[in-house]
């Protein structure tokens, strides 16, 4: 008797993994040094952000562990004032910069990831519907996307967040900030996905396997999500990496403008912003070090996305 798909044995999974490691994809990845280094950096940053509560020396959310006397201590390599307890120095409130950065990166990555997930769900659904059904539905959603794209994401976000803050007060806002940011960035950027998905659906829907699926008697929803969707995954994967980077940047920009994460729960953006006023008094590290991490993270994600785009597009094989 046959084994259903779900009961695939361990040995089979091992051979799958082995064949993946031997694949062209992995081979080309290994040959590209930029991609390997980028992936390494992204992995290290993501892991340290995820494991922040375990590896960071202090808990920046724990007010008891913070001593205002420790404020504005420069990084350890400053021979005069460096304190070996604080590897990267402290911020104006006396929080350890390293811990705060790790926790901040956690929030930035979380917002980036979930905002992209929201964009993806909205965009992919709308893109599939537009592309597959066509006609009036297509025209409606695509014009909506055009209108949405004619506003910049930041403008929409600033207006929405400012109105929310004014209407419900800063206290409620600081509690809900993370959800609001995810929501706003997520909704503002769906047209990117919708357009990409729609374009690939238009190319896919005239292929015979779609006819075959219709001939089998499948419902349009099943054809869209089970048959066409998997075929549009590679462009989705590529824009997802870029979009995560974009979402993190948007969040940082909003936080820098004071509309993002509150100071007691800082993301990379609000850290940069909080240090900005001290930069002329010589406490450069409060702004520069988080900025460095932000740039490093965004750059590696983008380089990885670039590589992925080349790798998934067989027309662009270089060698």
């Amino acid at each position: 008797m046959g084994k259903p798909h779900s009961e695939v044995s361990g040995a089979k999974i091992m051979t799958r993994i082995k064949s993946f490691l031997n694949s062209d994809f992995v081979y080309r990845f290994r040959k590209d040094k930029v991609a390997v280094v980028s992936l390494g950096i992204v992995l290290v940053l993501v892991l340290s952000a995820v494991l922040a509560p375990l590896i960071s020396p202090f808990d920046p959310y724990d007010l008891k562990s913070i001593d205002i006397m420790d404020s504005e201590i420069p990084p350890v390599w400053d021979e005069n004032d460096g304190d070996e307890r604080f590897l990267l120095g402290t911020d104006p409130q006396g929080r350890d910069m390293l811990s705060t950065i790790l926790y901040g990166m956690r929030i930035s990555l979380m917002i980036g990831f979930f905002a992209v997930l929201l964009q993806g769900i909205l965009g992919v659904t709308i893109g599939l519907l537009s592309g597959y059904l066509g006609g009036k539905i297509d025209a409606f959603f695509m014009r909506l996307a055009d209108i949405q794209l004619s506003f910049s994401t930041l403008m929409v976000a600033i207006i929405t967040l400012a109105i929310f803050q004014a209407a419900f007060g800063a206290e409620l806002y600081s509690k809900l900030a993370i959800f609001m940011l995810i929501l706003v960035i997520g909704i503002a950027e769906w047209p990117q996905y919708a357009r990409t998905v729609r374009a690939s659906v238009l190319a896919e829907k005239h292929k015979e396997y779609v006819d075959a699926a219709r001939v089998i008697g499948m419902s349009p929803a099943r054809i869209m999500f089970r048959h066409i969707f998997p075929n549009t995954l590679s462009p989705i994967l590529v824009i997802s990496t870029i979009q995560v980077a974009n979402a993190i940047i948007s969040e940082a920009a909003l936080s820098f403008l004071g509309l993002g994460m509150p100071v007691n729960q800082p993301s990379l953006g609000s850290l940069i912003s909080s240090g900005f006023e001290y930069i002329f008094s010589g406490s450069w590290w409060i702004t520069v070090i988080p900025s460095f991490f932000l740039v490093l993270l965004i750059l590696s994600i983008n380089l990885l996305g670039d590589w992925l785009r080349d790798a998934l597009n067989p027309k662009l094989y270089k060698d």
Binding site: Y209, A212, H227
Partner: peptide, 11 residues
């Protein structure tokens, strides 16, 4: 259909 390469979903 005519072309089995095209009628089966490649993914």
């Amino acid at each position: 259909f005519q072309d089995p390469m095209m009628t089966l979903n490649p993914v």
